[in-house]
Design a protein around this nucleic acid. Sequence first.
RNA 1: GGAGAGAUGGCCGAGUGGUCGAAGGCGCCUUCCUGCUAAGAAGGUAUACGGGUGACUGUAUCGAGGGUUCGAAUCCCUCUCUCUCCGCCA
Length: 423
Amino acid sequence: MLQVAYIRENRAQVLERLAVKNFKYPELVDEIIKLDEDRRQTQSKLDAISAEANAAAKQIGDLMRQGKKEEVEAIKANTGSLKEQIKTLSDQFNELEQQLQQQLVQLPNLPHLSVPKGTSADDNEIVLEHGIKPNLIANALPHWELAAKYDLIDFELGNKIAGAGFPVYKGKGAKLQRALINFFLDRAEAADYREVQPPIVVNEASGFGTGQLPDKEGQMYHIGMDNLYLIPTAEVPITNLYRDVIVKEEELPIKNCGYTPCFRREAGSYGAHVRGLNRLHQFDKVELVQLAHPDQSYQILDEMNTHVQSLLQALELPYRVLRLCGGDMSFTASLTFDMEVWCAAQARWLEVSSVSNFETFQSNRLKLRFKGKEGKPQLVHTLNGSALALPRIVASLLENNQTENGIRIPKALVPYTKFEWIN
RNA sequence: GGAGAGAUGGCCGAGUGGUCGAAGGCGCCUUCCUGCUAAGAAGGUAUACGGGUGACUGUAUCGAGGGUUCGAAUCCCUCUCUCUCCGCCA
């Protein structure tokens, strides 16, 4: 959520930035400015009358102590109309605040100046490509067939007990999951992230804090009876650890990481592109979350970017880094880098990580601030990134590393899997 | 799920319907003092939104929301959460 004062004072710039995200209702900006104007005027009136009423009440108190009953009655005669005015104005004020809030949450975050214009994934800027695409053996198989061939993942069985998109990992397939999670967590720990294990359901306030709610209910599984949501990413619970918190400036940056399963309804997805592990309703992911000083957040974004790349390099996977264009970025982000790995048998790039700086968009909703020795509390910048999401990593490992003799596990992972081959 | 108790500032904790944005303690910050691993003294120390170039100032906030009252941390109602005991259970 953008800050009203910022919108008010930087109207032209806000409009210009929103255009980069192809925001469809720029008139909302002026509606917000108008509502804010009304709100402030109403507050001024309300405050003045409340002050008057407070003064009268205080005076009555003094007079009562002196036993001057008649004078008290004279003052009381006036307070009735003050009360009515206060009631009317505060109703107005609450209404205006509510409207303002409703409008504000509809504005997406402003993209960073480096974000290219564009309308779809085709307009994303390829920042770099790393590694060499493997030459596959003849009769190379896509990962879903490899998973069946080596009895690693059972999509049918998952279908039976839950539904499509909930695979069952078996034997070395299951061990590979566990190995990847531990590998990613160890790497995060080595980079000074503190590991946390958050709940995998969250309440509404948490969903609002990181920007999933309102409006994106359809992407999350909802437990109606208890009004809880299954998390779509660990970003939600981990960032919300700091909701309504004022941290000390010298504690920044605050680095947390965590492994969780993630749940996504993925309503409307279909076709060959969602086969196998390409798109699931439940998957595992290790997430990095940082709270940063505004002066440092872009440097930290680069560091996170580098961290994710180091994981892909360790896993010997060819990858590329994209700078997302305005049209492909999320509602909440200021700048996002996506990492995609090459899946050789499908001959496709698959997104495995998304690293973003949200600047103050989330922290404004979360009321997450920092305070130095002097001065007012300021909103922190929040950042997060997948490091990494498992399914497409597995897809790529299986497809890229298939040989006549089985599937080779990359060296860095062998201490975790305790096996070098799947065969 | 049943019964009871409770929710006050960073923490602990007091609070009679007016003198309470809130005693006291701890913590923290600044200054002073004392030459010694420390102690003492003074002052300061919530947040949001307004108004003012600024010093400053108004309003709101004692779990949340309503109500009673000229006036509510204090009285009433609803909700949420926490704790204790019982039940169930990994």
